[in-house]
Design a protein around this nucleic acid. Sequence first.
DNA 1: CGTCTAATTGATCGTGGTCAAAACATGTGG
DNA 2: CCACATGTTTTGACCACGATCAATTAGACG
Lengths: 211, 211
Amino acid sequence: MQGTEHDHLRQMLTHVQFDPHSTIFHEAEDADYVFNVTSGSVKLYKLLGDGRRQITGFLFPGDFLGLALNATYSYTAEAIEPVTACRFPREKLEKLFDEYPRLEKRMLGMAVDELAAAQDQMLLLGRKTAKEKVASFLLMLARRQEHRGEESGMIHIPMSRSDIADYLGLTIETVSRTLTQLRKEATISLKDNRHIEAVGIDMLEDLAEGL
Amino acid sequence: MQGTEHDHLRQMLTHVQFDPHSTIFHEAEDADYVFNVTSGSVKLYKLLGDGRRQITGFLFPGDFLGLALNATYSYTAEAIEPVTACRFPREKLEKLFDEYPRLEKRMLGMAVDELAAAQDQMLLLGRKTAKEKVASFLLMLARRQEHRGEESGMIHIPMSRSDIADYLGLTIETVSRTLTQLRKEATISLKDNRHIEAVGIDMLEDLAEGL
DNA sequence: CGTCTAATTGATCGTGGTCAAAACATGTGG
DNA sequence: CCACATGTTTTGACCACGATCAATTAGACG
């Protein structure tokens, strides 16, 4: 009996794939599914009426997606690198919570963590200089990479300069200039424009905290 | 039996008061309590090493506070106007969730709503102009006032220019200049510097959405 | 190689920040 | 009620960080 229930819910859980630049879901669309990224990377963004874009977050393997309980998604999700994800119908979520009560607590915990991250990002967007923003961004990438065990002394940057700019509230030119500035100050070492060797992590940390 | 359990938990729920400018809790402090604001208004903020401040949100009667499940608060909470709040020990929260299972779902719903608001604020901080920021801020105040039934055609602004500036990622001078600009364009009408008559709500809405 | 897009670099501009002073508000004691 | 002190908001003059516009260089792919 527990088995059939379990199997029934497992059936709902399908794997899906997305090519780079393809949209996983759109802002204001009916939030029919929740996702769990298993490989690749994703950007989340919101748009203003005239096309200005703010990227509100990046997702990597292990991250949840679409945990909006509202009727519609509050942002657009788009694949950066080829993405595979587990998809689960949102309307079945209640049933899933009933079967795995601890899941709801984990969900709340994740939402709270995301909220704290969002507040850090507000501090970054509202009060940090371009240099501090870029330093914070590189640190964020390094820490999340480390957190999921992809350590290698090298920071992998899957997203374009344009994505970085729209994440930090800057332009691509300022991002580029700031990276070359950090390179000239020997804080970082650009291997190629998708791989950075972070020479002075502690210098980045000081920059990020505004010290 | 249900009665005694209920009473036991009710005992934990005490009312507390805070004077203006007094701190309800500090960032990085042990998160021992959660709060529910019953009157007054609260600001939440984070600081950088050199004192730069970002206000991440304002709270009004009915709003929850401290729903961090982590060990420590991720921001400082400070009273703007005299505040009264219900306080509940965080370590008893699990017990409370067990007794009122629907509470945990509401909690998750609130966290998700706050997350959506945080993303809107990121868009504001990263991509809106000073004028759009101030317009969005006034709209936010008007809508939340309306939502809790304090409508009066007048927007009440409990916080100082300095608080507004640190919420919008601007300086007090720019906030002030922008308000006088909106006044000269007859979009708003300043009654005194804590009360604004919003003449052109639709003009504010267009400004806020970047149209 | 040649084409196309992304990233860098350069020159100039403008929004919003900084510094300073004036206007205004609030409160206290004579 | 006024004189004075303190703090907040507004206004003004000037400045700088990051944006814009434009040209060049570097990668990616057929």
